[in-house]
C-alpha cells in the first residue's frame, strides 16, 4: 500500500505540497523577511524588490511575510479541528453502526437535522451568538461538520459490518471491543483517510471563505481569505494583492485533494481495472 503510494506521481505531488505548506506553517516566523503586521504607510503598493520579494500591500506590509504566516492560520485551524472531528466521527459512526437498532435510527435522524444546516449558516448563527473570534469559527466548523463525518464513517462501518468476516469473528467469540478496534476500524480506515484528506481541503477553503466575508478574524489578521478581502477595494488597480492569497489557498487545498484522490484510486481498484 505505502509502496504503491510512493510510486504514484499524483500522490507524491500532493504529499510534497502538503509537506511544503506544513513546513512553511511551522517555520513562518523564522523565514518571513519582515514583520507581517508592520505598517509602513509611506511604502504602500510597492512592487516586487529585493527588500520586499512580492511587494507591499495597501498598508505597506510585506506581502510575502503575510502569505507565509497565513499558512499557519489555515493549517493551524484546519488540522486540529479535523482531528477532533475525525475522532468524534469515528467513535459515533462505528458505535451506532455496530449497536444498530433504535440507537442507529436516533443517530441518523440527529445527523439529518444537523446536516440540514449549511456550514455558513451555522457559522453565522454562532458568530451572532458568541461574537467574532477564532473560537466561534472553530466551534461552528465542528458543529456543522461533525454530522457529515459521523455519517460517512457510519456508512463505511455499516458496509463492513455486513461482511462475513465480522460474523466469523463473532462466532469465534471476539469481544465487541475487539471487533470494533481490530476489525472494523482498521478496515474502514483507508476510506476514512481519503475523506479526511479531501475534507481538510474543503475546510481550508471554507475557513478562508468565512474570513473573506469578514467573519471570524479581527481586521488585519494575515489570514489568506482576510487578506483577499482587504485587498478587494484596490482590486482593479492592484489585482496581484488579490491573486496571491487565493493562489496560496489553491495550492494548499490542491495538495490535500491530490493526495486524497490518489489514495482513493488505490483503495478502490475495481474502478481502475478494466
Amino acid at each position: 500500500m505505502i509502496k504503491k503510494l510512493l510510486k504514484s506521481k499524483q500522490a507524491m505531488i500532493g504529499l510534497t505540497l502538503i509537506v511544503l505548506v506544513t513546513l512553511v506553517a511551522l517555520w513562518a516566523p523564522l523565514i518571513a523577511p519582515h514583520d507581517p503586521n508592520k505598517i509602513d504607510v509611506l511604502n504602500r503598493f510597492m512592487s516586487a524588490s529585493s527588500q520586499y520579494p512580492l511587494g507591499t500591500d495597501q498598508l505597506g506590509r510585506c506581502v510575502l511575510s503575510r502569505l507565509l504566516i497565513g499558512a499557519s492560520y489555515s493549517l493551524g485551524i484546519a488540522v486540529p479541528t479535523l482531528l477532533v472531528l475525525g475522532i468524534v466521527g469515528l467513535t459515533l459512526g462505528t458505535a451506532s453502526a455496530y449497536v444498530g437498532m433504535r440507537w442507529e435510527r436516533v443517530f441518523l435522524s440527529i445527523c439529518d437535522i444537523f446536516m440540514a444546516f449549511p456550514a455558513l449558516v451555522i457559522v453565522l448563527s454562532l458568530i451572532g451568538a458568541l461574537g467574532q473570534g477564532l473560537l466561534s469559527i472553530l466551534l461552528a466548523v465542528a458543529f456543522s461538520l461533525w454530522a457529515w463525518f459521523a455519517k460517512v464513517v457510519w456508512s463505511y462501518a455499516r458496509m463492513e459490518i455486513s461482511k462475513d468476516y465480522i460474523l466469523a469473528a463473532k462466532i469465534a467469540g471476539c469481544s465487541d471491543r475487539r471487533i470494533i478496534l481490530y476489525h472494523i476500524i482498521p478496515n474502514i480506515f483507508p476510506q476514512f483517510l481519503v475523506y479526511l484528506s479531501t475534507g481538510i481541503a474543503g475546510m481550508i477553503i471554507m475557513i478562508s471563505g468565512f474570513s473573506f466575508l469578514g467573519l471570524g478574524f479581527e481586521a488585519g489578521t494575515p489570514e489568506w481569505g482576510a487578506m483577499l478581502n482587504e485587498a478587494r477595494s484596490n482590486f482593479y488597480s492592484h489585482p496581484e494583492l488579490v491573486f496571491y492569497p487565493g493562489l496560496c489557498v489553491l495550492i494548499t487545498a490542491a495538495g490535500f485533494n491530490l493526495f486524497g484522490e490518489a489514495l482513493r484510486d488505490m483503495i478502490s481498484p475495481e474502478e481502475v481495472n478494466e
Binding site: A201, S208, F212, L228, F235, P239, L247, L250, A253, A254
Partner: peptide, 12 residues
C-alpha cells in the same frame, strides 16, 4: 483543481 479553487478567488 476545480474542487481546490476557492470560490471567492475564482470570482475575482
Amino acid at each position: 483543481l476545480g474542487a481546490s479553487l476557492p470560490n471567492f478567488w475564482l470570482g475575482f
